[in-house]
Amino acid sequence: MMGYIQNIRKKIGHDRLIAVGAGVFVYKDGKVLLQKRRDNLCWALHGGVVEIGEVVENAAKRELLEETGLIAGKLELLGVFSGDNRMYTYPNGDEVYIIGIIYICRDFAGELLPKTDETVELKWFDIDDLPKEISPLNVVPMQAFVDYIKRTNP
């Protein structure tokens, strides 16, 4: 089934569009699970665009399952991210402004997928030793996540 964004792209090409994204940081035992994205080869949280009529939290859980194989239980809202730093041009030329609704997941089950159509690698990182190559849309949410974890889990 073709998603909303793919359908719109057929009509507007690479022009900038506004989208709502749902993302998840998976956290356990002082480590965060990140994915290396296939499109820009940067490390990122798990997430994607909310489809029309989809509950945002369900979109976050769906994206987590698709990208990692993990089934999310309870999600905790980290925050809503918007502003100039949410403009992005994908390597294929598609321009977006993504309002990101980001969650933390500590309650999950399942087996990690080795890779998917969107990811080349999944890896657990110590919260104090994160990679330098963070996907641009994830820089601000990543800092907010680290700050929150350090503040609430001394």
Rank of each mutant, 00 (worst) to 15 (best):
E54F: 08
G69M: 09
R106L: 07
L64E: 05
I98P: 03
N58V: 03
R62I: 05
G13T: 00
V139K: 13
D126S: 15
E121K: 12
G93T: 02
A22D: 02
K132R: 08
N92Y: 12
G110D: 09
E57C: 02
I134E: 14
I104K: 13
N58W: 03
A22R: 01
E67H: 00
V55L: 09
L65K: 06
Q35T: 04
G13D: 04
K36E: 14
P114K: 05
L33C: 06
R62S: 08
P136E: 00
A44L: 14
E67K: 11
L137S: 10
I101H: 13
Q35L: 07
L77P: 09
I18H: 12
G23C: 07
E118L: 08
N138W: 15
L41G: 13
L45G: 14
D117Y: 06
N58D: 10
R106C: 11
V96M: 13
D107M: 12
R38G: 02
E67D: 05
I52R: 05
T68Y: 07
G48P: 02
E67R: 04
A109H: 07
T68R: 07
F25T: 04
I98V: 15
I127K: 13
I98T: 15
D129S: 14
G69F: 10
N40D: 15
V140R: 15
K61T: 01
S135A: 14
K36N: 14
I71K: 13
V55N: 10
R86T: 14
Q35R: 12
K132N: 05
Q35M: 09
A44W: 13
P91T: 02
I134P: 11
D39C: 11
T68C: 10
E121S: 07
E66L: 11
S135T: 11
E111D: 09
V120Q: 08
D128F: 15
G69V: 09
V55G: 02
R16V: 12
L137E: 08
G110E: 11
L41S: 13
V20Y: 05
Y27C: 02
V55W: 08
N85I: 11
G23K: 11
D126L: 14
E57L: 01
E57G: 02
K36V: 08
D39I: 13
K28S: 10
G83E: 03
D39V: 12
V140C: 07
L113K: 13
Y97E: 15
N58P: 02
R62V: 03
H46T: 06
